[in-house]
Structures are given as structure tokens and as C-alpha cells.
Design a protein around this nucleic acid. Structure first.
Lengths: 346, 346
DNA sequence: CACGCTTCTTAAATCGCTTTAAGAACTGCT
DNA sequence: AGCAGTTCTTAAAGCGATTTAAGAAGCGTG
């Protein structure tokens, strides 16, 4: 059963025509597999004539290198593992840009989805089993120590989440700055009673809350600082909205932890007859697909997915091919996107 | 000849501890790699004693088989390729269930994202390069002939899209039935003037439109059949909504091609002071995340992602391991989800 | 104790590609 | 011619697993 280069296209059970191998291409042009491999990978050496012939033959046979084999042989998979929450529209956008960025530097992506029944550990294990050379984790929640541990197996880039106390690569936007810009914008419109709806206990929530506090202080609105308990979903937004309506005089503007929360507020306000932005201005964070819907048209902050993705890939590749070993944190500036839910104070 | 696995754990240039290989496990228990491989894959043969020792050693070393190598050696990748539109929330849900379904039958998933700059061809090529054994395409738009061609390289399962005229595996829900159920529901509420907002020229749009027509006819509402030009986005929904408002008497109910379109209608109606469902009932299709937002609370049709995912995996695996060769179309019944945008006719 | 039978183990060949050291084919120069 | 220098090519050794045919134990029997 070792009729290696036999004439029969394929045997076995299936009917498929047996994918051509490097050897088939080599045989066709009467060269060695070594030469063919060299040509196909663009390694200098082969003569122009050889190059042309090989390229032609490969094209004619419809040859596609076998990733598994070349990964094994070269001990390089040229794969970047990406852990992503399939349900997050923001992650979707990141993935989109990661793809193009990776392609430009000759890497491919392996996506590992986070689901209700698939935790970060599983997702990462899968990535490792694929021999990904570096891991790009979108909004990881694992403790810093775990990530540091992981980083010893393969370079880790945390996107969107600041990692304190561990020497890891991080790419993120300045969350405090984003909220700060929003506050600036509102103050510029004459608002003073600007409330903030908090997002919980995560690192991100902390940063955004801090950004709000600082900005208010900066504008001398210290005594107007008002942080309300909230969350990251429409539901919590609605709850907070109702509390606001019940608890006496409304602020003239409310900044929410994220778009979903903001939309919850919006819904409650409008159905209670409170006009937005007529009576209350509302701003969110994330530039979620939701926020762009014309029925919301929410003023929000964009995290610049494109640039973050690009930086994440660069960061990973630098450690892989560039020999960088010092961890680096890349902090990008977010962009305020003014839409229709904020206007001059009443 | 087998002094390959020397005593030193790693050494060499790098600093990483060098992932343990099968050979390392074998050396540790003084057995051959063959035995270890057998044990680790659960193949009967090795004695109980051997089994225990191997398992222990593997655990101690933290051994994880190298997918790349085993795929190459076994000529089986046990990988299912999934083409997915990262931006679609419905696809996200499918992916989630595909993961669990695949895991149950011992397969892993490779996701290949469709983006603005990454077409179906590219996505599928990637999947093939990973040596996926079968391809699960979520809502493919490629012509039937292309898919049939592809199917010769690896079994293809089209999810959500009916493929006419090509012998391919398909898993989908009955779109006509879904719209039919919606119409039934509305008729049951006393509606007679039920309009339909079309979704364009695709197969799915055609089916849904047909479902509307048939259902209306079935209820003897032949002369109330009213199909409006529309689309699949909020924008087109809004446009159609405005046309409806302009063009004289409103129907008492409008069924839209999908949720996004329905939400466009909703937005226009409400901002024009037309109450939904007070004056007009509105229904969508897809049970999109959007539709669940309390501010929309849209009556819609669920495509039962979980079951579709499960069937898709089963279908693929049957062809891979079960030897099935006849193509099969699995049509699941969609489920009407009544929420707050439909009520008794005025 | 030699025999046939199981039951375990393992040597060795692959899988399809990469990589490196060595070989072949030319060149130009003395 | 002879020799060094270039420029191309290739043989052959892996990569880390799987797989199979053959070998080694173990074990009742006659």
C-alpha cells in the first residue's frame, strides 16, 4: 500500500480527486520538491526560468499548500489566535479589521468563540492546540496572573482591557478620556447637572467612572457629580432610568457606561414622556450598531476598532518576528461621535 | 537510536519550556510512542496498567496533542469549517450552538469570517487550507453551481438557504411557513388588511413573500394581498414606512421581511404619531436581538438556531462518518414569537 | 517443554511540507 | 586547463503524530 506516486487519482472510499501535493507539482516540471517549495514561498534562490515554470504548473494543478504539513515542517504556523465573544458587535468589527491587518503581514486568524458553555480557558486551549503563535484576546476577564502564565506559552495581547500588575501587551482606548470628551461636549452645551450611570465593578467600568469624575472636577462641577448604580444591559439601563424619574429632579444630561445602558435609559425616558434630547440629553459609549439606528441616533464614543485591530496585530507580530520582549501598552484615543441625543441644556 | 529525548527539559535558544511531545510522555513511562498514542486516543489494546501509567505521565507533563501533527498523520483533521458573517447576530447564535454540537461528536470548529473585504471564496479557501473535512456555510450566496463544485472537495451543508437544482445538503427553516404563521396570528386577531413588505430578490425573500400570498389566499383575503417593495435594512424599512403613510389608508397590520425592516417601519410610524400596535400591528422575522429590546418588543418568528446548528453538524458528520451520500434537505418549522407589536384589529 | 493462542507492545513507514548542507553547472580568471 | 566563486538544485533529515504488521510475553494444554 505504498504506491506513492501512482497514476490513479485517488482511491479509497470517497470520490474526490485527491488534492495535489508539492510532489505532484515537482513531478510535473521535473524538479525537486525543494525547489518548488522555495519558489512557492518566494524564497530567493531559484532561477527565473524555474520560478516561471513552477508557478505555471502549480496554477494548472490548482495546487494549494497544506497548512498542516507546512506548519509541522516549519515549526511556524503563521497563525494568530483570536478569542472573541461572538455575541458582541464590537468584537465582530474588531475581527473584521484583524483579518485585513493579519493578512497584510502574512498571518492567518483562528477564531475561538466564547459562548455561554465555552469559557476563556477552553477557548484558549483550542487556540493553543492549533499552534497559534500569538494570542489576541478580546476583552479577556481572566485574572492578570492567569494571563501572565499564558503569556509564557505564547505572546498574549489583551485588547480593550487594561491589565494591571502583569507584564503583558495591551491595546486599548483610553476609557477615561472617552467619557471625559463626552462630559466636555455636554458642558460645552451648557449642561452642569450631568449624571453618570455606572457599569459595574470591572476595570473598564472603573476607568470610565474615573473619567467622568475627573472631567466634572476639571470643569468645577464637583458638586454635581452624581454616579448612579447601573450595569451593562438595556435592562439595567431601564431600571436606572426609572429610579432617576422617581427620585426627584432630573439632571439635564445623563452619560451611560455603554450604549446598551443608554438605550435602556432612552426607552424609559421617552415612554414616560420625557423628551430626549429636549428635556434630557443622553450619551452612551461604544458606538454600537444599535446606537446608529435612526430611532436612537445616540451620541456615543467610538473605540476605533480599525486602529485597535491594527495595533493588536502589530504588537503580536513584533514579538514574534521583531524580537521585542518588553511588554507594551498601546493606548489609543477614543472619538466622540455626536449624534442626536445631546443638545443644549434647557 | 532513541536517545533523542535527553534529560534536559528544553535548553536551546528560546526560553519557553518546549511543549511536551508524545515521545516525552513515552520516555517518561518507558514505553513506545505507539502505545502512548493508543492510550491517549482511547483505542482498545493497551493493558489497564499501561493505560493508567500513560494517563498519569501525560497529566504530569501537561501533554496536549499537536493537532497539526495528528491531522497530518491520520489524514483526518476532525475539523468542521464554518463560514460566518461576523456581523450577523443570528450567525453568532448559530456558532454558539454549532460549537456545542460539534464538541459532542468529537469535532472542532474553524470559523472563517465574511467581511466587507473578504468574500465567500476567500473564506472557503481558508477553510479548505485548514483541511476541514466538511463545510458548514451560513447563508451562502454563491450560485448553486459553485457550491456543487465545492461539494466535491468537501461535503457542504448550506444553512438557512435553500439550494435549488444542486444535490446539496441543506438545513433551513420553512420561511413560507413562518410568514404563514404570522398571517394566521394576525387574522386570528381580526385583521384583514394585512400588507407585506418585501425583502428583495433572494431565495429567502421569495419564500417569505410566497408564504404571505398563500396564507392570505388560504384565509380568503385574496383581494387584500398587498406587497410593498422593501429591503432588509432599517433604512429600507423606513422608506417603505413613509410610502405607506403617504399613500392613503393604512393597512391594519404590516408584516415585514425581517426584523430590521420591521424596526424601520416601527420608527417611522411612531414618530409620525401612528401607534403601534394601537393603530397598526407590525411583525418581523428572525427574532433578532433587536426585536427583544423592550423599546421594540417586536412580534417575530424565531428560526430556532439551536436545532438548525445541531442538524447542520449531524448532517455533516453523517456524510463524513456515516457514509451517507444522498443529499438531504432538512426543513425545520420556525416558531412564531408573539410580543407587543401585534394586537386586535382596530 | 514445545505448541498454539491470546494479549500487549513496538519498530518503522507515513503524512506533506521545510530546511540545510552538499552537489552540479557555469563563470571568469590566470 | 585548473581553480575559485557564483548561482541553482536537490538529497535527505526532520516536524509530531498515526497506523500496521510483526514481535514478545503470558498461558493453558497435551
Amino acid at each position: 500500500m505504498h504506491e506513492s506516486g501512482s497514476a490513479v487519482p485517488a482511491g479509497g472510499t470517497g470520490g474526490s480527486p485527491a488534492r495535489p501535493r508539492l510532489e505532484d507539482v515537482a513531478a510535473r516540471v521535473g524538479l525537486s520538491t525543494a525547489s518548488v517549495s522555495l519558489v512557492l514561498r518566494g524564497v530567493p534562490g531559484p532561477s527565473e526560468r524555474t520560478r516561471q515554470r513552477v508557478l505555471k504548473a502549480a496554477a494548472e494543478l490548482g495546487y494549494r499548500p497544506d497548512r498542516t504539513a507546512s506548519a509541522l515542517a516549519s515549526r511556524r504556523s503563521r497563525l494568530l489566535g483570536v478569542m472573541v465573544d461572538v455575541h458582541s458587535p464590537f468584537h465582530a468589527e474588531l475581527v473584521e479589521h484583524l483579518h485585513t491587518a493579519a493578512e497584510e503581514v502574512g498571518y492567518d486568524l483562528v477564531l475561538s468563540a466564547l459562548t455561554r458553555t465555552r469559557d476563556e480557558n477552553t477557548a484558549v486551549e483550542t487556540l493553543l492546540a492549533f499552534r497559534c503563535e500569538a494570542l489576541i484576546l478580546l476583552g479577556p476577564v481572566a485574572p492578570a496572573a492567569t494571563l501572565a502564565e499564558l503569556d509564557r506559552k505564547a505572546p498574549v495581547v489583551s485588547v480593550g482591557r487594561r491589565i494591571a500588575g502583569a507584564p503583558l501587551d495591551v491595546v486599548r482606548t483610553a476609557d477615561d478620556d472617552g467619557v471625559g470628551q463626552t462630559v466636555d461636549h455636554l458642558v460645552g452645551l451648557g449642561h452642569r447637572a450631568i449624571a453618570y450611570v455606572d457599569g459595574g465593578k470591572g476595570v473598564i467600568a472603573t476607568d470610565r467612572r474615573g473619567g467622568y469624575r475627573d472631567a466634572m472636577r476639571r470643569h468645577g462641577l464637583h458638586e454635581h457629580v452624581h454616579v448612579l448604580r447601573g450595569g451593562s444591559t438595556e435592562e439595567t439601563g431601564e431600571q436606572t432610568g426609572r429610579r432617576l424619574l422617581d427620585d426627584g429632579p432630573l439632571p439635564t444630561a445623563v452619560v451611560a457606561y455603554n450604549d446598551q445602558s443608554a438605550i435602556g435609559l432612552l426607552t424609559v425616558f421617552r415612554s414616560a414622556g420625557v423628551e430626549v434630547p429636549g428635556t434630557v440629553s443622553v450619551a452612551g459609549y461604544d458606538d454600537d450598531t444599535l446606537s446608529r439606528l435612526s430611532c436612537f441616533n445616540l451620541t456615543t464614543v467610538s473605540q476605533n476598532a480599525r486602529e485597535q485591530a491594527r495595533q493588536a496585530v502589530t504588537t503580536a507580530v513584533e514579538r514574534l518576528d521583531g524580537g521585542r520582549t518588553e511588554p507594551r501598552e498601546t493606548v489609543l484615543a477614543p472619538t466622540l461621535i455626536v449624534r442626536g441625543t445631546t443638545t443644549r441644556a434647557r
